[in-house]
Simulated scan of single mutants.
Amino acid sequence: MAADSPVPLATAAQLQEGPYADLVRSYSPQALSDLMIEATRMCEGAAGRRLAPFTGLVETERSTGIDPDEYIDAGNVPLDLAGTLGQSYAYAMGTTSLARHGWLQEFAPKYQDLWAYSLQTITIHRSYGGDQQVNLSTVRGPDPDTGHIWFPIGEFLPLGSFVTYVYGGGYSTIPADLVRAGKYMAASIAVRELDPTMAGHGHDPDVLAADAEAICASYGRG
């Protein structure tokens, strides 16, 4: 049994439709399902990022830096009630250096139109004490092509605070080349399990794995 159960990049049925069906004809349905999961995780390892749909991922970043054009020391900037209260609190705490940007580590390197986010929670941990859950309706993003999140003016997010994101994402529709990579990787695993010498199958596991990794490399972190 596989340790986890992501949505596979290529399904068992897709693997069985083509020339690799002979490699898995003796696999039980559960073993075949596990194979596709393992192939998916290996493809993600080759790319160095999440590709298949996921949920409940926890990331923490430290808020650093601020665009000089986004300092909010001008008294004539119109704010809603929440922004006004946040700004007033920031002044009371002796700071106006509030971060406005966050960045999720997982985003779509290409085919952004096929990527879907589900932002679950954002929690601010301030260095001098006090945690706060952010009202997600006030946040812009995340943007699928960058993972960028834009906090509203007045959000009390001092520089140096830690921010914890809990979210889901991934390709809601798997790009065709990733489906191909998943099949290559699964076939490579199957060949090694059935016949490490490759005799009698006509499939080279090293070539298959290399082909899968070459596709995944185009999704890697530059």
Rank of each mutant, 00 (worst) to 15 (best):
N135E: 12
L98P: 03
W103F: 10
L136W: 05
G182N: 08
A108P: 07
V179H: 14
L136F: 09
T146G: 09
D143N: 10
G130A: 12
A108V: 00
Q112R: 06
T146W: 07
H101Y: 14
T121W: 03
I124K: 07
G168A: 07
T173V: 14
R100P: 05
I124N: 05
S127K: 15
D177I: 07
P158Y: 03
T95D: 09
V179I: 15
F107Y: 15
I124E: 05
L114H: 07
T95C: 07
G168S: 10
R140K: 13
P144C: 05
V163R: 03
L98S: 02
V134E: 00
Y128I: 07
Y111W: 11
Y165I: 00
A176W: 10
L98T: 08
Y111A: 10
A176K: 14
G168D: 08
T173H: 06
T138W: 05
P152C: 08
L104A: 08
T164N: 01
W150Q: 14
H148Q: 11
G147W: 04
A181C: 11
P109R: 05
Q105S: 15
W115D: 01
Q132E: 15
A181M: 12
I124W: 09
Q120V: 03
F156T: 03
W115N: 04
L104Q: 10
T123F: 02
Q120A: 02
S118Q: 11
H101L: 10
F162E: 09
R180K: 15
Y117N: 08
Y171M: 01
E155M: 06
G130M: 11
L119Y: 02
A176S: 15
T146C: 08
G170N: 04
H125G: 04
T96L: 15
L157I: 05
F151Q: 01
V134M: 01
V134T: 04
V166S: 03
P109H: 03
V163D: 01
H148M: 08
R126V: 05
Y171Q: 06
R180C: 11
D113Q: 13
D145A: 13
I174S: 02
R180W: 12
Y128E: 12
T164Y: 01
A116P: 04
